Simulated assay, not measured.
Amino acid sequence: MEAALADSGWRLRAGFELEWVVVVPGADGTPQAVLPGGPYGADRLIEGLDYASALLKALDEAEVPWLQFHPEYGPSQFELSFAPDRSLTVADHLIRARLVIQRVTRRFGWYSSFSAKPRLDWVGNGGHLHLSVLHDQGPILQGGQGIHGLKPEGEALIAGLLEQLPSLMALASPSPVSYLRLVPSSWSAPFQVWGVENREAALRLVPSAADGCDAHLEIKAVDPTTNPYLLLGALQAQVKAALERPRVLPPAQIGDPAAAPGSSARRLPSSLLEARDALAADHVLEAAMGPLLHGSLLDSLAAEIQRVQQLQVEDQVSGCCWWPLVGGLA
């Protein structure tokens, strides 16, 4: 997909954010926080200084180019941001980072959970994906005469990705538990809208003035259960389709769609079943993947949906909150 996009004159650069919680099993087997501190608080960094130092040293030794490490909102939760690069490279870095985090955390006698919902009463772990698209004349999300400085190609990109986002959800949030995280008014962005620096928009435009980097998009409905190779392959196919067949860019969403009076914002898939149905109907991804891969993905998603069909929500959450189950929790 990277080569096909390049043949059309485009290049995609992407970077992930990875969230996880540092936990131990409680008496009832549920995850318990081990590093105290308030939401986004420096107190958690102080309490977890030895852990943070060991982790970042190990990431450097593993040649994972991270940009930022900080405490997140939830109990004992952290986030790591990665430098943007070509798609195959950033997928490799994400997998390597998850392995390093898991091993360093175990050295301290703790566990790392990358689940989209480690506990029902906690915020979930996200794995947001940032992306930009360039051609020979430079980036297409800035320096133009369109709204918010977009070039025509930038408007086409946003409109196309927004339209195709429901089918991408099956790869971006591929666990039944993923959809317990995607609820309104929680910065998880479950509505099919775009916005400028709007954290309730599924597709968030970050202008260059916001952080000094090139303008880029953030897809928020991604969590750490994603397979980054499948996700980035599918995304590049959708980028190519968006730029080949421009759509009309709808107005940007201002504020929280759930709180807007009379809002007609459409929800993204609210279950893995709905996301699978969207993937099944997506002719762009079917053509890009080929019938074997596309069909195999649909089969595996159907099997996972059937597996959890009779499980209570609590059992779904507890069944995937530990990663990986190497040697049990002893």
Rank of each mutant, 00 (worst) to 15 (best):
residue 154 G to M: 12
residue 216 H to Q: 05
residue 208 S to T: 13
residue 158 I to F: 04
residue 118 P to W: 04
residue 113 S to F: 00
residue 104 V to N: 03
residue 214 D to Q: 14
residue 126 G to D: 03
residue 189 A to D: 08
residue 171 L to G: 10
residue 228 P to L: 06
residue 138 G to E: 09
residue 219 I to P: 00
residue 144 G to W: 08
residue 106 R to P: 05
residue 121 D to A: 12
residue 118 P to K: 05
residue 198 N to I: 10
residue 119 R to W: 00
residue 227 N to D: 15
residue 230 L to T: 01
residue 127 G to R: 03
residue 222 V to S: 07
residue 216 H to S: 02
residue 107 R to D: 14
residue 175 S to H: 13
residue 212 G to M: 13
residue 223 D to P: 11
residue 207 P to S: 15
residue 173 S to P: 00
residue 120 L to C: 02
residue 208 S to I: 06
residue 134 L to P: 01
residue 182 L to Q: 10
residue 201 A to E: 13
residue 159 A to G: 01
residue 112 S to K: 05
residue 120 L to Y: 05
residue 205 L to V: 11
residue 208 S to A: 14
residue 151 K to S: 12
residue 210 A to R: 15
residue 200 E to I: 10
residue 187 W to Y: 11
residue 176 P to F: 09
residue 106 R to V: 04
residue 161 L to T: 07
residue 195 G to L: 07
residue 125 N to G: 04
residue 163 E to Q: 14
residue 201 A to R: 08
residue 194 W to I: 07
residue 223 D to W: 06
residue 219 I to Y: 02
residue 162 L to Y: 09
residue 178 S to C: 06
residue 227 N to F: 00
residue 144 G to M: 07
residue 105 T to Y: 07
residue 166 P to W: 12
residue 225 T to Q: 13
residue 133 V to K: 11
residue 150 L to F: 09
residue 217 L to S: 07
residue 118 P to T: 08
residue 117 K to S: 04
residue 131 L to E: 02
residue 162 L to W: 10
residue 171 L to H: 11
residue 121 D to C: 08
residue 119 R to V: 00
residue 229 Y to D: 02
residue 131 L to H: 01
residue 182 L to W: 10
residue 172 A to M: 14
residue 210 A to K: 14
residue 118 P to M: 06
residue 186 S to P: 09
residue 176 P to H: 08
residue 203 L to I: 15
residue 152 P to Y: 07
